[in-house]
Design a protein around this nucleic acid. Structure first.
Lengths: 102, 102
DNA sequence: GACATGTATGGCAATATTGCCATTAAGGAG
DNA sequence: CTCCTTAATGGCAATATTGCCATACATGTC
């Protein structure tokens, strides 16, 4: 059923639907990062970050590889970065005055 | 704070993170649709569809206009359709055998 | 082996999302 | 105004997500 495709796509969108996960993906666009780096970046508990990464991994957006005692995460589908621009465009389109930040 | 930008982007992603809402957006890419059409399309309760549309509207993705006793919804930011392709790419990248549907 | 560092998992409470029913609101037709 | 059609809102239970703590697991060092 092509209905299922929408469900799968929604799953991908859900993986993107969190501030911390977007921050991590943004960092991964340049280079692979270990969990310790990402944990410091988002400023949450290490276990929390690990669960966020599991969500991105299960969605197929990132992959992980072990290197010594560190685990590095890699952005598998850079096309998700396109979403960043679109999201910005959407936010801008609301043209609310307090969004001069953008 | 640029931190807030991630929160705003996550909000947009959240709006996309539901099967029914993706189905509706897909339908809106061709032409504007009234709530009654969208309700029939997704096959949920009318009140449920109305709440889904409110989420898309609050995110800035769609707009609504009244025409007689019907309300038509319009896709304001077609760039979200790019997400569909990327999501498909992500799903495909999982290369699971049972996904020959795609 | 014991120990330290880095990461993942179980559990659980707080919070958010979802979807229906019932009701309200807005327009048009008579 | 009454009735009908269409859409939005309030309420509420079911479900999902989030984030911490505690703990387990993996690897390297000594």
């Amino acid at each position: 059923m092509s209905q299922d495709i929408y469900k799968l796509k929604a799953q991908v969108a859900k993986a993107l639907a969190h501030e911390s996960r977007l921050i991590m993906l943004d960092a991964l666009k340049d280079e692979d990062r270990c969990v310790c780096e990402l944990t410091e970046l988002v400023g949450a508990d290490q276990s929390t970050v690990s669960k966020h990464l599991a969500i991105l991994r299960n969605a197929g957006i990132v992959s992980d590889r072990r290197e010594a005692n560190k685990v590095f995460y890699h952005l598998e589908t850079p096309c998700v970065l396109q979403f960043f621009n679109c999201a910005l465009e959407v936010v801008r389109s609301r043209q609310q005055s307090f969004l001069t930040v953008l």
